[in-house]
Structures are given as C-alpha cells and as structure tokens.
Amino acid sequence: MSGIKISEDHEWVSLDGDTATVGITDYAQNALGDVVFVELPEVGASFAKGDEVAVVESVKAASEIYAPVSGEITGVNAALEDQPDKINQSPLDDGWLFRIRLSDAGEIDELMDEDAYASFVAGLK
C-alpha cells in the first residue's frame, strides 16, 4: 500500500479524494495480540481528531482507537464483527476499520509518512 500516512497512535490513513480509510499498523496489531472483538463507530457519526472512535480488544485487554483525522464516518468494516482476527491477519488491507470523510483536509499533513513512522517505531524499542 503506497501513500499512506500514519499517526503516533499507530493508525494508518489512506486518502482517496476527501475520504480516508483507517486501520491499525502491523506494529500495533502485533503489540495488541490476538484480536477477539472490535467495536466500530456508527456510520454518520462525527469525530474530532483524537476522539475515541473505536475499540479493539484482545484476550487480555481493550485498546481505544483515536480518530487520526476529524470528520464523518462514511463506512465501517462489518466483516470484523465475525472475523476480528482479520486485523491480525491483514492489518493494512482486509483488517481496515472505518472510512471517514475529512472535515479538515489539512490534518492529513500532520501525520507521518512511512519512513518517519518506521523511525518513530524504532525509537519505541
């Protein structure tokens, strides 16, 4: 996947026009462990950048997902309801979480590119 932007909370954002697809990175799924439940936002709901928008739960713990950009939810990955482990199997593709229509296109530039994210993750170890 090319041209994705990534937040410091380990969410990737792939922009298509004014709408972004959002998921969690491979680093994040690996840190969380086996995902057993995902709570997704309502389509039509609006979130500001940094709001809690979804919850991803492993056997052991629940982890909040924060909106990497502000906007309105236009779609969610309903397949995760029955197969939450898609997040582990395919975090950057089949394991996407939701789509959001950006209310402030400029926010995308505040996110890291893949190289910057790689350095960011290296700094966490």
Binding site: G33, D34, V36, S58, V59, K60
Partner: peptide, 12 residues
C-alpha cells in the same frame, strides 16, 4: 512473561 510468540489465544 505475559505471552510468548504463539500469543495468548493459541497458548490457551
């Protein structure tokens, strides 16, 4: 150790 590479689900 909270988990090994197998992961909590498969370890269980």
């Amino acid at each position: 150790p909270v988990q090994y590479p197998l992961g909590v689900l498969k370890e269980h």
